[in-house]
Amino acid sequence: MAASPSRHDVFQAIADPTRRQLLRLLGDQEMPVTVISGHFPMSRTAVSKHLRILAEAGLVKGRKVGRETRYRLDPEPLLELKQWLAYYERFWENKMAMLKHYVESGKLDGAEPAASLKAVQPTKKE
């Protein structure tokens, strides 16, 4: 049985909403965990665990200043996420282009059946 990797990848790290909030918070300035934890309704230990996962993914860096560690965002690993998402942008752009064509065609007066919007609207699974 293979051992699980000790490092988290970017996708695992950003999967949690708290960690995404941490990244947003640290995008503006470097902060110690005591200040960071004040922004969340959880213990400092819980915040530290989230920071550790982000650090393992390379998304945050910590540096010692006296007795505290200050954390900051390192956005470089997010390039992997951006490259992965770039492939799927073509699907979004296609839907937006279809919507733009529909709106600009002037067929919003009710003469065109709503069925033509099916290509734009997501379908519900029953």
Rank of each mutant, 00 (worst) to 15 (best):
Leu79Cys: 11
Trp84Met: 15
Ala114Asn: 05
Thr123Lys: 14
Ala3Thr: 07
Arg44Ser: 10
Ser6Tyr: 07
Ala3Val: 02
Val35Ile: 09
Lys82Asp: 13
Leu54Ile: 08
Ile14Lys: 00
Ser116Met: 12
Lys61Asp: 13
Asp16Ser: 10
Arg52His: 14
Ala86Gln: 12
Ala13Gly: 00
Arg70Thr: 07
Tyr102Thr: 01
Leu85Pro: 05
Arg70Pro: 03
Leu26Ala: 03
Glu30Ser: 15
Gly58Tyr: 01
Lys49Arg: 15
Ala119Pro: 01
Arg19Phe: 10
Ala97Arg: 12
Tyr87Asn: 07
Ala86Ile: 04
Leu25Trp: 10
Val65Arg: 12
Ala111Leu: 13
Thr123Trp: 14
Lys95Phe: 00
Tyr71Asn: 06
Glu93Gly: 05
Pro75Ala: 01
Leu108Thr: 03
Glu80Phe: 09
Leu23Trp: 04
Ala97Gly: 01
Leu79Arg: 08
Ser48Lys: 03
Ile53Asp: 13
Asn94Tyr: 05
Lys49Gln: 13
Glu68Ala: 15
His39Thr: 08
Ala46Arg: 08
Leu117Arg: 00
Tyr102Ile: 02
Leu23Asn: 07
Arg7Tyr: 07
Ala46Val: 11
Ser116Ile: 08
Val35Trp: 06
Leu117Cys: 03
Thr18Ala: 10
Thr45Glu: 15
Tyr88Trp: 01
Leu108Ala: 04
Thr45Asp: 11
Trp84Arg: 12
Thr34Trp: 11
Lys49Tyr: 11
Leu51Gln: 00
Tyr87Ser: 09
Gly110Ser: 00
Pro32Ala: 11
Val120Trp: 01
Arg19Gln: 10
Met96Ile: 10
His39Glu: 15
Glu56Ser: 06
Gln121Cys: 13
Leu26His: 03
Lys124Met: 15
Ser37Leu: 12
Pro122Asp: 03
Leu59Ala: 06
Asp9Arg: 05
Tyr87Lys: 10
Ala15Asn: 08
Ala97Asp: 01
Glu56Leu: 14
Thr123Ser: 15
Glu56Lys: 09
Asp28His: 13
Arg20Leu: 12
Ala13Asn: 00
Val35Thr: 10
Gly110Pro: 02
Ser116Leu: 15
Ile53Tyr: 05
His101Met: 12
Phe91Asn: 05
Met96Glu: 15
Tyr71Ile: 08
Asp28Asn: 09
Leu85Glu: 09
Arg70Gln: 14
Glu68Val: 06
Val10Thr: 03
Leu51Asn: 04
Thr45Tyr: 13
Leu22His: 02
Val33Asp: 01
Asp16Leu: 14
Pro75Asn: 04
Ala114Glu: 11
Arg20Lys: 03
Asp9Ala: 06
